[in-house]
Design a protein around this nucleic acid. Structure first.
Ligand code: SF4
Ligand code: SF4
Lengths: 150, 150
DNA sequence: TCCAAATAGGACTAAAATCATCCTTAATGT
DNA sequence: ACATTAAGGATGATTTTAGTCCTATTTGGA
């Protein structure tokens, strides 16, 4: 359907939440689940993907939880999504050359290449640190608006 | 999976083929199916969608077949895809305001808006007439290359 | 050493989407 | 009437999505 799945969406929410927390402080899965409105048992699977992909570190037992494995500045939206959904390919011919045998004479192929490039540009252009900053700006803006409405 | 479905892909192939034919000349579904490598019975459903969407006209019986309903210049890639897949929304929050109740404070939401805008730009920027021209240019280029290889 | 707290990992499932096929009906030109 | 051709409905196999649940493993502290 040319749409992000819940896996990708939830991964972004989780990584973004970790990015908003003090670095190094382990965050419980329950806390992520509740604040980000993601089913806990489902989130558990997603976190496993993120750990294997090297974006997140986990510790079990008391004082356990999840932390970012790298600074939020170095983690992009695209990377987070691809960690749980696999590489983004807007059409099968972008998977690899020859995946669609028409690619060498198809006039639509280059259009998909361009579309993919533009999409990647946007998704790779935002780091988790950027998003945390944007989120804080939105919060500030909302407070101002509410004050005006009084 | 954030990927175009066969429906969209096949629709593009079919409309592009019609665009490459003399305007007004009815083309049989068998001809489209074979030249574009799309299962005939499946293609039949897709053509129905395209007719209902107003991109293609059909005539039954002898001398029947499919023709474009409008000049190829006025039909874009995006339009063709959306005719069979429904509107493209890269994430659910782009369907309508409030579809995701987090949209008014979510810092990721604007990124998806931007991504969608960029994607639409590319897909709406190519008309079927453009693609036919591109296809002819590719054919010419391939002939030249083959000559050099001799 | 034993326990409680956490995540890891595997098995399982319901529902939906995807990718078709086949058959009957309706229109159309000769 | 009749051959031709698309329309439309029913059906189905397979895959993906979205999620749950249970057991195992790790960890730190009493
Ligand atoms: S756009 Fe062209 S190359 Fe890509 S999948 Fe479709 S036919 Fe193949
Ligand atoms: S990006 Fe934000 S607004 Fe869009 S679906 Fe995810 S949480 Fe909702």
């Amino acid at each position: 359907m040319l749409q992000l799945t819940r896996n990708g969406e939830y991964a972004v929410r989780a990584v973004l939440y970790l990015s908003s927390q003090p670095p190094g402080k382990p965050v419980l899965i329950t806390e992520i689940s509740e604040s980000q409105e993601v089913p806990k048992s489902y989130l558990s699977k997603i976190m496993q993907h993120l750990v294997r992909a090297g974006l997140v570190r986990s510790r079990r037992g008391i004082n356990g939880g999840f932390t970012l494995a790298r600074p939020a500045e170095t983690i992009t939206l695209k990377e987070t999504i691809e960690a749980v959904e696999g590489p983004i390919h807007l059409n099968i011919c972008l998977i690899r050359k020859g995946e669609c045998h028409r690619d060498d004479f198809c006039p639509v192929h280059p259009v998909w290449q361009e579309a993919q490039r533009r999409l990647s540009e946007v998704l790779d252009g935002k780091s988790m640190a950027d998003l945390v900053r944007d989120g804080e700006a939105i919060k500030k803006q909302m407070k101002k608006t509410r004050r005006k409405q009084k």
